[in-house]
């Protein structure tokens, strides 16, 4: 069973909640799919057993010994990546999308495509099972392909080790990396917060989850920061026929646990928030799809 934890808005508490889920019972496979801001390894300090290279597309590079300044590449490029500076063709690494077109049409064969091979995927063991996380090199395109690679590895480790539950900690937003995180999973947990921004992003996140016909559960984190907005979110969920999994209070212990490198349920299983997370987790995994 693959369970994805996502949220449209960042900073709602996705990773802290995923970390708690991962340490509640038995062995799990934990996959950090927030590949351009992976954090869970900080709590779990996994023992890395395997490191794999991820090719994040290509970049065009000019060989000036061959370039005749014909500007054909500049005319064909649709990403505004090629310009003429001081009578020299210059390719902007930031704007280049790696489509290969310039390298194909260049009459002098002066353009070479170089693979972006600085991103990595790590997998190994942590105290509650297996863990996988990606590390996108700075500024690389987060196309969701690295997320797919992380998920494939998670499935492989789940089968090899007989760990049936895979927890995917997703990225914020609703774009490609999020879509890659949720396609085909068993259940999606959406973490929101009672803010105007939180509610607005929740609606867009539910939109993307429904587009893929997935079963969604909502958690309102820090619900006591704004009771009236929490009530509004609950009302909206009810009207939209989405299951509320539960509400969690604002608790400074979340940060304290993080500082100590623990999930909140490891840090103190007896406090209110930890007990509530356990109830929510049981509700999510036990409900039949």
């Amino acid at each position: 069973m693959e369970i994805a934890v996502i949220s449209g808005k960042g900073g709602t508490g996705k990773s802290s909640i995923s970390a708690a889920f991962a340490t509640l019972n038995g062995d799990v496979v934990l996959a950090d799919c927030d590949v351009d801001a992976a954090n869970l390894y900080l709590l779990f300090d996994p023992f890395v057993e395997e490191e794999e290279v991820y090719i994040a597309g290509h970049k065009a590079v000019i060989d000036y010994s061959k370039c005749t300044n014909c500007k054909m590449c500049k005319d064909y490029c649709r990403f505004d990546a090629i310009s003429l500076k001081n009578d020299k063709i210059v390719i902007s690494e930031i704007s280049c999308d790696g489509c290969f077109l310039c390298s194909r049409i260049c009459p002098e064969n002066a353009i070479r495509m170089v693979a972006n091979d600085k991103s990595r995927m790590y997998s190994g063991s942590f105290r509650n099972g297996k863990m996988i996380y990606g590390r996108l090199a700075p500024g690389e395109e987060n196309s969701g392909k690295l997320v797919n690679m992380v998920r494939l590895k998670a499935k492989q480790l789940s089968e090899e080790n007989g760990m049936n539950i895979i927890i995917l900690d997703g990225p914020p937003g609703i774009g490609c990396p999020v879509i890659s995180t949720i396609t085909g999973v068993s259940k999606v947990v959406i973490v929101t917060e009672p803010t105007i921004s939180g509610l607005d992003d929740l609606k867009r996140t539910v939109g993307i989850v429904q587009k893929f016909n997935l079963l969604a559960y909502i958690i309102i984190n820090k619900y006591d920061l704004n009771f009236s907005l929490s009530a509004q979110i609950k009302k909206w969920c009810k009207e939209s026929n989405i299951t509320m999994a539960g509400e969690l209070p604002f608790d400074k212990n979340i940060v304290e646990a993080m500082v100590q490198g623990k999930s909140i349920t490891e840090f103190n299983p007896e406090i209110n928030i930890s007990k509530k997370i356990k109830i929510i987790w049981n509700k999510i995994i036990n409900q039949k799809t």
Binding site: D36, N39, I94, L136, G139
Partner: peptide
Amino acid sequence: PGTSCPFVQTAASADYVILVTEPTPFGLS
């Protein structure tokens, strides 16, 4: 948010970038 393409495109068109963080291990990383 993030450090990939959408962020880089925004930052690249700016003259200066203010990075907002929080004093936690996740924030620092």
